[in-house]
Amino acid sequence: MKNILKPTGILLIICVISSTILSVLYSRTKPIIEANNKAAIEAARKAVLPDAVKESFTAVDVNNIASGQPDFEPDSILFYKGYNQAGELVGFTYKSAGQGYSSSTKVVTMVGINLDLKIDKIKIIKQQETPGLGANCTSTDFTQHFSHKDPSTIKVDKDGGEIKSITGATITTRAVTNSIRDEFLTIKKDMMKQLDKGAE
């Protein structure tokens, strides 16, 4: 019996000590990590919609109720509204994800939409594509093609559209382009509603 109790006791002690240390550290680092994540995503929103003020972005969820909790991001959030210094609505941002060449990580794009429902800028915020080929999608040489385009009709050149594909990486180009378009088409109606509201 002693043979079982002693090791169990020692393991228990080690577990208790290490979990105590870790839980203290966790409670210390959690707010910093969340603040970092929030700052990163706000910087991305600002990058694709430069006219808006960084802190002004507010979420729009399915019921069109602007929620005031930016770090709480349920699936029901469709897009964010951005306001300028004077408090006027200047555009929207949304995230789209498309299956690229990497099986594990989708290509996630942050898209900024102007009030005339054209793309302002886009930014690839997450990708694991092939270095030198698909990974070139993060360069501005590629992303600038999207500016001032109508997101509901964009297509890759090989599919008869106007987006010039990255050399040797049509799959990545398609993932970005199609995901932007498809996501836009699902949220377009709600975006128009927000526009009407802003006009009132």
């Binding site: 050149d157 090989k158 599919d159 008869g160 010039k164 594909s165 050399t167 049509t170």
Partner: peptide, 10 residues
């Protein structure tokens, strides 16, 4: 022709 164009790289 439209429909399925192949431009640029190809």
């Amino acid at each position: 022709e439209g429909g399925n164009q192949m431009l640029g790289n190809l």
